[in-house]
Design a protein around this nucleic acid. Structure first.
Lengths: 300, 300
DNA sequence: CGATCCGGTGCATTCAATGCACCACTAAGG
DNA sequence: CCTTAGTGGTGCATTGAATGCACCGGATCG
């Protein structure tokens, strides 16, 4: 696998922007690395880096090469996983890029359930906003993405989708807890804590507020939904999150209720992979399990 | 590219069925080859050959590995082709598996036209029956297939299809040349020369004959459509072929006419590739050109 | 039972990959 | 305008992985 080693070095050069820095990062001499690159370019038949006075930078050919090797590496992992499956040993590794909402309840439960059945399978969970998640898939850094209301859909192949209404959350003794139906204007009339604009929940809130001639003016704006969940217990404020990121049993003292569909259509939580890619056995089975769990959830 | 070299050797072992034979074919010692294989299996993490008393044979894991590397090699070729495209040099190589009907007129014309525009692109044309053609695509030995009435359609992604009625051909002074509409029974009443059963033309003939209670009883049965074309000039016999394999201008002294659709539905000539594969720039453009030519042909 | 094939292994050799020292060059920065 | 600290690239000695040779143990076939 000498070959993939060279590719790892090429990736390091692209990342560092300089042969010498990359050499240092990779614990080899710059000369050796320089030669590896030169040899690769000679054998490949064309330069893949532009030589700049202050370093090097991938040229378009290099971008293609990088993409090719990432795909190859991922496919090799899939083959290994399938082989492991053949030999009876259920091993594998699953990398997931997901929205924050999945972190507290859904994913831990799903991963634990899967690992209970297949202890040989390991996981990596990367928290990413919806734009980053798709980039992760395209560069093969993640196998699956589970995100709320992703923006771009090129190269994102949807494996499963369930609707998730935006919910308002507040302390149990908050006046809104008495309301039979929760309207958006009521939430906005109270002090509220909202996620940053890059998140899908905020996008839906902004859009819905605009439609009724209001704006979202949070007293606290944050990138952390965890903060939102805990904050509403301290100030008598209204937070926002989708149901999958909430649990009535676990967060006692807090209640959450969906905002009326008259004000806001539900958003979509999407499970997806890179379009056209063949997933490893473990990843594929885990995706099946997650899809099933999502289906049961939206059915119930 | 040390790595792809090892894979070439593994392919040689799989082909030869024995390390020693493969070593001889590859001009290295059996010991070196044995070690390469051992090292690969060690690094890969599992054996890919069963060791038999009289040699070795790929195990299921090996089949997967082979498939993976073939895909990888093909994808690397695509990347190289795209890079060549970037650097302005239009180079590339296109491998086609095709039915015999394409050989005399259609493909030479198409290839010559393409090479006239892009002299850097080279071609390989493999004559294959319809079953072999699909196998060629799956194993990445060919990039495109252009075949008449392929049987299996798994993994065969159709890029373009045109109908082709089976035609009867005979000498200009053959009695059938007077007939206003050509019926199947008339052809079968005369001595006829027909292709072997594995060909689509024969399949359609057999089926149509059965429907009218007749059988195809050729005086000459052959695997060569070239023989058929020339034979009808020597004996007063009826041959069969699809229009794309025939030319009124070029084969003077011979005429051909479609068999009435009342007796036989036209078959399909399909241009296809391996499902899901990304073709090289040259291959993709050539496929576009061929599809266009086919469209014009069926339109006219 | 001998001949012949097979995959696998210890040992000496060789050649490609590496590290070191150094060159030429450029962009900043007094 | 010169210094300095970066950069990519190169000649040379060294080393270690891949190779070839000779050989082993075992299975099949005539």
């Amino acid at each position: 696998m000498q070959h993939l080693d060279t590719f790892r070095l090429i990736e390091a050069i692209a990342r560092a922007g300089s042969i010498r820095k990359a050499a240092e990062d990779s614990n080899i001499t710059a000369s050796a690395l320089n030669r590896r690159l030169a040899r690769f370019e000679r054998e490949f038949g064309s330069q893949i880096f532009e030589r700049l006075p202050r370093g090097v930078r991938l040229n378009p050919a290099g971008e293609l090469v990088l993409q090719h090797y990432r795909a190859q590496r991922s496919d090799l992992a899939r083959v290994k996983s399938q082989v492991a499956d053949l030999t009876g040993v259920r091993r594998g590794h699953v990398t997931i890029a997901c929205s924050q909402a999945l972190l507290p309840f859904f994913l831990p439960e799903q991963i634990a359930a899967y690992r209970n059945a297949h202890p040989g399978v390991t996981f990596a969970v990367n928290v990413r906003d919806r734009e980053q998640a798709e980039a992760e898939l395209v560069s093969f850094r993640s196998d699956l993405a589970l995100v709320f209301e992703p923006r771009v859909l090129v190269d994102f192949q949807v494996l499963h989708a369930i609707p998730q209404p935006v919910c308002a959350l507040f302390a149990r003794d908050h006046p809104l807890a008495q309301q039979p139906e929760l309207r958006l204007r009521d939430c906005l009339d109270h002090p509220h804590i909202a996620p940053a604009h890059k998140y899908g929940v905020r996008g839906l809130l902004d859009m819905a507020a605009k439609r009724v001639g209001r704006t979202v003016t949070p007293v606290v704006e944050t990138e952390s939904f965890e903060l939102i969940r805990y904050y509403v217990m301290h100030e008598r404020a209204v937070g926002f999150q989708i149901p999958i990121g909430l649990s009535a049993e676990r967060d006692t003292g807090m209640v959450f209720r969906p905002i009326s569909v008259r004000d806001m259509p539900p958003g979509n939580l999407l499970l997806g992979q890179m379009r056209g890619r063949v997933l490893s056995v473990a990843t594929s089975r885990f995706a099946d399990q997650v899809a099933l769990a999502l289906a049961e959830m939206s059915g119930a």
